[in-house]
Amino acid sequence: MALKPTIFKFIISLSDLDRDYYDTLHLTVAQHPSESTERMMARVMAYCLNAREGLIFTTGLSTPNEPDIWQRSLDDQLLTWIDVGEPAFERIKKASRQASEVKLYSFNQKSEVWWQQEQAQFRRLPISVMRFPWPAIQSLAALVERSMVCSVSISEGTLYVAAKLGEAEIPCSLLQG
């Protein structure tokens, strides 16, 4: 019997001072059985950094040919492809041919080693690559509840999260783009 995803509900008061974008997000996020809470929260932070009309979570880990988050046009063209983690170069090369905009958010403890090994290849692609520090993502994951109301403020590339269980500061450094 296959394990089912765990469903999380987020109500996020988003204030993105960098883009002058303000909204209340009602997100339902399915955590894949093999996905860590840290990865799920990295996905949520990537969503917040790119929030706009039409941006949605995909089935992600369940469907290898889809990104974690995307935006499609009304005529179903792929506008934005957002991946979280340390994807293979060939996957992102293919995505850069399909989507107008491709963004990667690396977040875990092997992120720095992955980037050192892969950056020469990725530099040839018209993509953006960002990194969340692993300790910051871990502190954010410690705040997670199945049903969560929080505020996320973004200023100068740093996300400030305030929730019932505490606060976290998640800097997002630009590696390429």
Rank of each mutant, 00 (worst) to 15 (best):
M1H: 05
T6K: 12
I7C: 01
S13K: 08
S13R: 15
S13Q: 15
S15K: 09
S15Y: 09
S15Q: 12
R19L: 02
R19I: 00
D20Q: 02
D20Y: 00
T24L: 04
L25Y: 00
H26K: 13
L27R: 06
L27A: 02
V29G: 02
Q31H: 02
P33G: 06
S34A: 14
E35H: 04
S36H: 04
R39A: 09
M41C: 07
M41Y: 00
A42L: 02
R43L: 04
R43Y: 05
A46L: 09
C48Q: 04
C48G: 10
L49S: 06
R52V: 00
R52A: 09
R52G: 03
E53A: 03
G54H: 02
G60L: 06
G60W: 04
L61Q: 11
S62F: 11
T63D: 12
T63H: 09
T63K: 10
E66W: 09
E66F: 07
P67N: 01
P67E: 01
D68E: 13
D68M: 02
W70S: 01
Q71T: 08
L74E: 11
L74A: 08
D76F: 08
L78P: 09
L79V: 11
L79I: 10
W81H: 05
W81Y: 11
W81M: 05
I82V: 14
I82R: 06
D83E: 13
P87T: 09
A88Y: 15
F89E: 13
R91I: 13
K93G: 07
K93N: 12
Q98A: 11
Q98N: 11
A99I: 02
S100L: 04
S106P: 03
N108I: 05
K110Q: 15
S111T: 07
E112K: 10
W114L: 05
W115K: 07
E118R: 02
Q119C: 08
A120T: 12
A120Q: 15
Q121S: 12
Q121E: 14
R123D: 03
R123E: 06
R124H: 04
R124K: 12
R124D: 12
L125K: 01
P126C: 03
S128K: 09
V129R: 01
M130S: 11
R131E: 11
R131W: 08
R131M: 08
W134K: 06
P135H: 05
A136N: 03
I137E: 01
I137Q: 01
Q138S: 10
Q138Y: 05
A141P: 00
A142H: 03
V144Y: 01
E145Y: 00
S147T: 15
V149H: 12
S151E: 14
S155M: 13
G157C: 10
G157M: 09
V161I: 15
V161W: 08
A162C: 08
L165D: 02
L165Y: 10
G166C: 01
G166R: 14
E167W: 05
A168G: 03
E169T: 12
E169W: 00
E169K: 14
E169A: 03
C172L: 12
S173Y: 08
L174V: 14
L174F: 08
Q176N: 11
